[in-house]
């Protein structure tokens, strides 16, 4: 059997739009209907390229004195003649069309495994029933947490309403990523994305509860105000990373960079809004009112003298704000 070559016409992202098998040489490539590979590009000549075999098992690509020339894609060099060694490939541009030329002796790498993306944990989220179970756990825990916020006696109507809203949120979010997955990789992988959303919802809930207890135990509202959004940003970036790992062929580094940038942008906006709101004048009181069912021994307490003795910083802040006051005359202490 003689050498077989493949002319692969690529789209802008480097994905194969069309692959044409060439098993007879020399073969021509151009816009005309007499060519072995017909390229529908008005900047390509009627007969643009000739592809022939050399004595060493490789291929020779020749430009047929065309008006717009033949260009190497990577080096952007115009060539009259270009050799493709045996087992190699050429990436060329004719007109506005990028084409990859490979022989059947071109070696391809082993199949990629999605398990490699998530390690040993990956098989759980690939497994339909387990993935659904993970989502159900996340959903259930969130509904339970919401149930603790309700102060009415009969809470079923509120719970049902909240559950429905949560379900819709899950469906929309997972649906969005599944839709993207379908576009890129021609499969939905809904359960996998659902499991990732479920894991993230558990992580968000854990973060919220952990910070509430921290705030209560240490009376550390200021620390929590900064750390909690940062924690949310970390979980959100991991969530994005998980979805991107399933639905895209970006490298790990690019996936992480994309996730971190998006999360950082959202975090920046949240901090900006929060900072602006804090500096705005109002007659509201802003303080932490979190209370948890914890015994005294777990909570950091001070004496009455310590609490009231430490109010100097409050006074200093207020006095500094008062000094920023109106420009006309004021009475000083």
């Amino acid at each position: 059997m003689g050498k077989i070559a493949f002319a692969e016409i690529l789209d802008r992202r480097g994905n194969i739009r069309e692959r044409v098998r060439i098993d007879s040489f020399p073969a021509t490539i151009g816009r005309g209907y007499t060519n072995a590979v017909i390229v529908d590009d008005r900047l390509v000549s009627v007969e643009h390229l000739r592809l022939s075999l050399d004595s060493e098992g490789g291929m020779i690509v020749e430009d047929l004195n065309t008006a717009n020339g033949t260009w190497l894609s990577k080096s952007r060099e115009r060539v009259e003649r270009h050799s493709v060694p045996a087992g190699g490939e050429a990436l060329i541009r004719i007109g506005q069309t990028v084409m990859r030329l490979r022989g059947d002796d071109f070696a391809v790498g082993p199949a990629a495994s999605s398990r490699a993306l998530f390690g040993p944990f990956g098989r759980f989220i690939e497994n339909g029933p387990i993935a659904f179970g993970i989502f159900a756990a996340g959903f259930g825990l969130n509904v339970l947490a919401f149930g603790q916020e309700i102060s009415k006696k009969v809470i079923w109507s509120d719970l049902t309403g909240m559950s429905l809203l949560l379900l819709i949120a899950f469906a929309l979010w997972t649906g969005f990523w599944s839709f993207l997955n379908r576009l890129v990789l021609h499969s939905f992988r809904f359960m996998t994305h659902l499991a990732i959303s479920g894991i993230a919802s558990i992580a968000f809930l854990t973060l919220i509860v952990a910070f509430q207890y921290f705030e209560f135990i240490f009376s550390a509202a200021t620390v929590v105000r900064v750390a909690q959004p940062a924690g949310f940003a970390v979980i959100f970036s991991l969530l994005l990373y998980g979805h991107l790992s399933v639905m895209s062929e970006l490298s790990g580094r690019k996936r992480m960079l994309t996730s971190v940038l998006i999360s950082a942008a959202i975090l920046g906006i949240v901090f900006l809004v929060s900072y602006t709101r804090e500096k705005e004048f109002s007659n509201e009181l802003r303080f932490s009112s979190v209370m948890k069912p914890l015994g005294r021994k777990w909570v950091k307490m001070v004496s009455s003298d310590e609490f009231f003795g430490d109010l100097g910083k409050v006074k200093a802040k207020i006095d500094a704000m008062a000094k920023e006051g109106p420009k006309d005359k004021t009475v000083k202490e």
Partner: peptide, 28 residues
């Protein structure tokens, strides 16, 4: 000015309190 608050948890004898002290100053 706007209110500035300090929170704490304090213990007085047998009773523990969650407390908040908020104050604002008069500019003029």
């Amino acid at each position: 000015t706007r209110f500035e608050c300090k929170s704490g948890t304090l213990r007085r004898g047998e009773i523990s309190f969650k407390t908040v002290f908020c104050a604002r100053g008069y500019k003029k």
